[in-house]
């Protein structure tokens, strides 16, 4: 599959451990732990079926899944069209494309990467913060 290009061979010269069996065994242990975890959760905390859907009966406090909670909560505070535009139209292309500007833009400035990573860290903190607000029931 891989012939020895510069990227591969640089690692092979530095040493490290062979994929099989050294790394493979560690990987296998992690995988066994994952299987045990999901089997444990599925056995002891089976997913309830819930009430059947009823278009005429709006339930109290509709909550999306936890991974949508940040967006759901932020949309309560910012105008919806602005929040949605950012979430669906600005954020995804930025996320996908910023590495293409790593050398030409980000690293032109001494603190470029530090700034980028700080913005990322603030993003993570914001996401956790708004998820917590949502679960604590702030409107």
């Amino acid at each position: 599959m891989s012939n020895n290009n510069q990227i591969d061979s640089s690692h092979e010269q530095e040493g490290g451990v062979p994929f099989f069996p050294d790394h493979f065994l560690k990987e296998a242990a992690v995988m066994a732990l994952l299987l045990a975890t999901v089997a444990f959760l599925a056995s002891l905390m089976p997913m309830p079926v819930g009430e059947p859907a009823d278009a005429l009966k709006t339930p109290l406090g509709i909550k999306p899944e936890w991974y949508f909670m940040t967006v759901y909560q932020i949309l309560k505070y910012v105008p919806r069209n602005i929040g949605v535009t950012f979430t669906f139209l600005i954020f995804p292309p930025f996320m996908m494309l910023f590495p293409f500007f790593y050398k030409s833009v980000i690293c032109k400035w001494k603190y470029g990467r530090l700034t980028l990573h700080t913005v990322g860290a603030l993003g993570v903190i914001t996401a956790i913060f708004f998820t917590m607000l949502a679960y604590l029931g702030f409107e």
Binding site: P18, F19, D22
Partner: peptide, 12 residues
């Protein structure tokens, strides 16, 4: 063989 023997770097 190539896949099994490729090295995983130490910092992993």
């Amino acid at each position: 063989k190539e896949f099994a023997e490729h090295n995983v770097p130490d910092h992993v």
